[in-house]
Design a protein around this nucleic acid. Structure first.
Lengths: 148, 148
DNA sequence: GTTGATGCAAAGCTTTTGCACACCG
DNA sequence: CGGTGTGCAAAAGCTTTGCATCAAC
């Protein structure tokens, strides 16, 4: 990763935050980077732990504040699919999620080339985006079940 | 329960619970009925409050236990879309959800006659169901925004 | 200076757990 | 009996809030 690319990313994040009425603080961009560094779906606490490695003075309250700001700026999505702490996802590319019934893991499913879902919307609703949650067995668990 | 004739619904619920290895207790069927009585997406606490009206001795822990059993028996779905308490939905007919960005309400969107979503699943995943979450403005909020 | 953000600690809300008792098989 | 479920209370987990301080506009 080059310094040039990084600053470009920073700029974009800053711009998005600004557009939504938030200041682009070091904490906010750092939380965003923490989230993008790994393609998983961490809880606020996991983000906090990771973020602290590079920014030891950051607090939990700030992580929540940052995540809120990032979600409202459409830089990060909530991905709750079961009880327990809210999870966050920084992959804003068009994609969906697959939740394994067996192990509970969440996977990103690319939606490139997918057809728009055809669902009749009742009058008056103005949808501007959608996300599909698939459920079933992930490759690992499907293998284990078959193996038995 | 008693030997008195149970309703057809009760029987079906009992059967589903049994199939999943749960006993069909009065609390479980009552929580299920409480949930089906109104077509909304209450939190566990809201379910508790409603359930207590007819069954004053029921406890919060039991409501959680019942909801768990119902979810595992596929009689009830979790519908989390924002931070805060988990919400539950007993409408298991094929349908999707619409979440309003403005007021945060969740609406059921009928999916009758909808086309299967066409998304390329990576090798090995065995999906058996899916749900689409739409986001945007509900009729009320869309109206107010236009009005301004 | 005014407003917004941070860090800390405390409070608040949501969910789970341990335990004694009751019930079903 | 043995195991499951319930109700209660306490604990644990997750998130928000109040406040003093600091930084940005």
């Amino acid at each position: 990763m080059s310094a040039v690319k990084e600053s470009k990313l920073d700029e974009q994040v800053a711009q998005r935050l600004d557009q939504s009425g938030f200041r682009a603080t070091p904490q906010r961009t750092h939380v965003y980077k923490t989230l993008t560094a790994k393609r998983d779906h961490p809880t606020a606490e996991e983000v906090f732990i990771r973020a602290k490695k590079e920014m030891p003075e950051i607090s939990m309250a700030t992580v929540y504040n940052c995540l809120d700001a990032l979600v409202q700026s459409n830089l990060v999505k909530l991905v709750n699919h079961e009880r327990g702490a809210t999870r966050y996802c920084s992959n804003m590319m068009e994609h969906h999620h697959f939740y394994c019934d067996e192990c509970g893991s969440a996977f990103d499913i690319d939606s490139a080339g997918a057809r728009e879902p055809l669902v009749k919307m009742p009058a008056g609703f103005k949808p501007d985006r959608y996300e599909i949650a698939f459920r079933g067995l992930c490759p690992d668990c499907a293998g284990k079940k078959r193996g038995k």
